[in-house]
Design a protein around this nucleic acid. Structure first.
Lengths: 331, 331
DNA sequence: TCTTTTTTGGAAATCGTTTTCCGAAACCGT
DNA sequence: ACGGTTTCGGAAAACGATTTCCAAAAAAGA
C-alpha cells in the first residue's frame, strides 16, 4: 500500500507538506504543489480514509440514520434514494458516510447513543424519514453535541439545519391542480391527512385549509396516519360522499384508490411523494414528486457546512407536480 | 471520550490486557476479565471502531457494493433490504460495513479500483444485484485480493463464496404451482426469461425446461431482459396464443400483466422475487419470495468467514412460494 | 529445593494520517 | 548590510486501538 510517506520521499518533501497539498492548505508554493501532485500520480497514491478519520478531530465522519421498514417496503425505495444522494455528495466532499440503522439507537438513552456515535468518530448526523416527535432523535439533537441536518424536521439553531420542501405550498399546488382538472372548483373535497402531530402533516393540512378558503371549497379532514389501510378504511366509510380525494401521501392515495375500486366509483385521487408504486394503480394520479436523491445529497452538504463551523439554516428544496399515467411510466 | 487507556488505568491493568478482553483473546485470567469488564461498564467505554479498523490489519472492513437504479426504483427496495440485512450482521460481528456505490468503481481499471478500496482498509467485498459478466467485478474477483461474498454470481474458490437460492428449483416450483392451480398440466406456456447470459437466467430457464419435460408441456421461451417494457411487448405480441405466462422476474410479470389487461384477456401470470409492487397489480399472482434481508446478512457473515481464513463455499438460501392476493397485502 | 514449562500481564511499536510548532529561507524597506 | 516580517517546509506528537514480544509469576516436574 502506498502511504503518504512514500509520496513524501518520492517528491523529496516532508510528510506534512504532502498532507497540506492533499487538503488544499495555503502556504505551499506552487512548484512544491506541482511536484507533490506528480508524485501522487506516479505512485497512484490514494489517501487512507480510515487513518484520516482517526487523525483529524476536526473533520469527523457523517452518519446517516436509516429507518428501513419491515412492513411497507415501498418506503425503502425512498430511503435508498436518500442514501444514494447522500453517498454521492459524501464522496464529493471526501467525507466518510456511515449508515446507521435507527434501530441500533433505540434501546439506548442519550448518553449511550452519544457514546456509540462518538466511538465511530461521528461528528455530524443526517436524519431522513424520522419524525420530530421521535424521542431518541429529540434528545440527540437537543444536546447539540453533533451537527445535524434534519430532513422534514423543522429545527434550526447553531448546530442544526432543516432540509425539506415547502410542504404547505406543494400540497396546495397539487390539490389545486387536481381540482382544476376536474371541472371547476365547486367540489366537495375529502382530505386524508397524515399523523396529526407531525410537522409535514401540519404543513400540508395548513396548505389545504388555505386552499379551501381561497377557492371557497367545502372540505372534510380525516386522519389517515400515513397508512394505506387507514386511508382505505376512511375512504370506504366516507369516500362516496365526496368528489375528490386528496391524500397527504402516496401510500394513502393508493389505499383510497383501492377503496374506490372496491366501491366501484371513480373519483380523482391525488397523493404526495412520487413513489414508484403510484404509477401502477389507477388510471392516472397526480402527486408531488420529491427529489429524494437530491434531498439526501443536500442534507450531507448542509451537515458538512455545519461541521465547518457555519450556522444552521433552512434549506427549501424544489418540488415537482406530476401526473402519472398508468402504463406510461413503463421503463 | 473514554479510551482504552482510561479503562486500563481504572481497572489497574495494561492497555493490551483490556484489548485482549474486548476481543476475547485467551490467556487472560477469569478475575482479570471480570475487573476489566466492570471498568468498561463503569466508564461506559465503547471501543473506537475507526482506530480499530486502522490498527488491525487482520480484521479489515467489509464493503458492500450497491447499485441503486436511476430508472426502475422498484429495485431499490431490494437493494435496501440487502443493505439492511448486511448492516445487521455487520453490527453483530462488530465489523465496519462500508457502502460503496458501484458507480464509483466504474471509471477505474482494476488497479485503481483495488487501490481505492484498499485505501479504505477494505478487506472483504459483498456484492449484490450484479451480474457475473460485469467487467469491473470480474477483474476485482479474479485477482483474489479481496475476500468476496457474491450474491447470485456463481464463483467459488479460496477467497470467494457464492450466496443464492436454488434458482432452478425455485423457478420449477413456482411454475408448477401456477400450472397446477390452473386446471391440469395440458397447457401452453409462455416463458419470459431474463438476460440470456446471466447465471440466474440460465438456472431459471433450466428449471423451466426440466419442468416442461417432466409435465410434458408445450412451452415457448422469449427473452425479456428483466425489463418490464420488454415483457409487455412480448406479451402483446405472443401472449394471446398461450394459457399461462411464467416470468423470470416480478417486474417482467408486471409488464406481462399490463399487456394482458390491455388486451383484455386474463391468463395467470407468475413472477419471481417478491417485490412489493407485485401485490398491487392483477387480482392474484404467484411469485417466489426471496428473503433479501437474510441473504444480505448471510453474505456479510460469509465474507467474515472468508476473512477469517476459511475457504469459499456455496451457500444456498431458502425460498418461499407465495400467492399475493390483491387487497390482501395492505398493511 | 531447584530447574523447566506454562500462564498471564505489560511496555512499546505500529497503523497512516493530521496538525502544531518551530526554524530556515526569502523578501522587504531603510 | 541589517533587523523585521512573511512564507515555506520539516520534525514530531497526536489519534485510539491492536499486536508482538518479553518478563514476571505461577505451576509442574525432578
Amino acid at each position: 500500500m502506498t502511504t503518504i510517506r512514500d509520496v513524501a520521499k518520492h517528491a523529496g518533501v516532508a510528510v506534512s507538506t504532502v498532507s497540506k497539498v492533499i487538503n488544499h492548505y495555503p502556504n505551499v508554493s506552487e512548484e512544491t504543489v506541482e511536484r507533490v501532485r506528480q508524485a501522487i500520480d506516479e505512485l497512484g497514491f490514494v489517501p487512507n480514509s480510515v487513518a484520516a478519520a482517526l487523525s483529524s478531530k476536526q473533520s469527523g465522519r457523517i452518519a446517516i440514520l436509516l429507518n428501513p421498514s419491515t412492513q411497507t417496503q415501498a418506503i425503502d425505495e425512498i430511503t435508498m434514494q436518500y442514501l444514494t444522494g447522500a453517498m454521492l455528495s459524501a464522496q464529493e466532499l471526501r467525507t466518510e458516510l456511515v449508515p446507521i440503522l435507527f434501530g441500533s439507537l433505540e434501546g439506548k438513552d442519550e448518553t449511550e447513543a452519544e457514546r456509540y456515535l462518538e466511538a465511530q468518530n461521528i461528528k455530524g448526523l443526517v436524519v431522513c424519514g424520522m419524525s420530530k416527535e421521535d424521542y431518541v432523535l429529540q434528545r440527540l439533537v437537543a444536546r447539540e453535541h453533533f451537527k445535524c441536518a434534519l430532513v422534514d424536521v423543522p429545527i434550526v439553531n447553531d448546530s442544526t439545519s432543516y432540509i425539506g420542501l415547502d410542504h404547505k405550498q406543494a400540497q396546495k399546488d397539487i390539490a389545486r391542480k387536481t381540482i382544476m382538472e376536474n371541472l371547476g372548483p365547486s367540489k366537495e373535497i375529502l382530505y386524508i391527512s397524515g399523523k396529526m402531530n407531525g410537522f409535514v402533516s401540519e404543513q400540508r393540512l395548513a396548505g389545504m385549509l388555505e386552499l379551501a378558503e381561497e377557492l371557497d371549497l367545502s372540505m372534510s379532514v380525516h386522519c389517515g396516519e400515513f397508512s394505506e389501510k387507514k386511508a382505505r378504511e376512511i375512504t370506504l366509510k366516507y369516500g362516496a360522499g365526496y368528489d375528490i380525494i386528496v391524500c397527504a401521501s402516496d401510500l394513502m392515495a393508493i389505499g383510497a384508490m383501492k377503496a374506490l375500486i372496491e366501491m366501484d366509483i371513480f373519483h380523482p385521487v391525488c397523493g404526495f411523494d412520487g413513489i414508484t408504486l403510484m404509477g401502477y394503480v389507477g388510471k392516472q394520479m397526480n402527486t408531488v414528486r420529491q427529489n429524494f436523491r437530491e434531498i439526501g445529497a443536500e442534507a450531507v452538504r448542509e451537515c458538512a457546512r455545519l461541521m465547518g463551523g457555519e450556522k444552521g439554516q433552512s434549506v427549501i428544496m424544489d418540488h415537482e407536480l406530476v401526473r402519472l399515467e398508468y402504463l406510461d411510466i413503463i421503463v
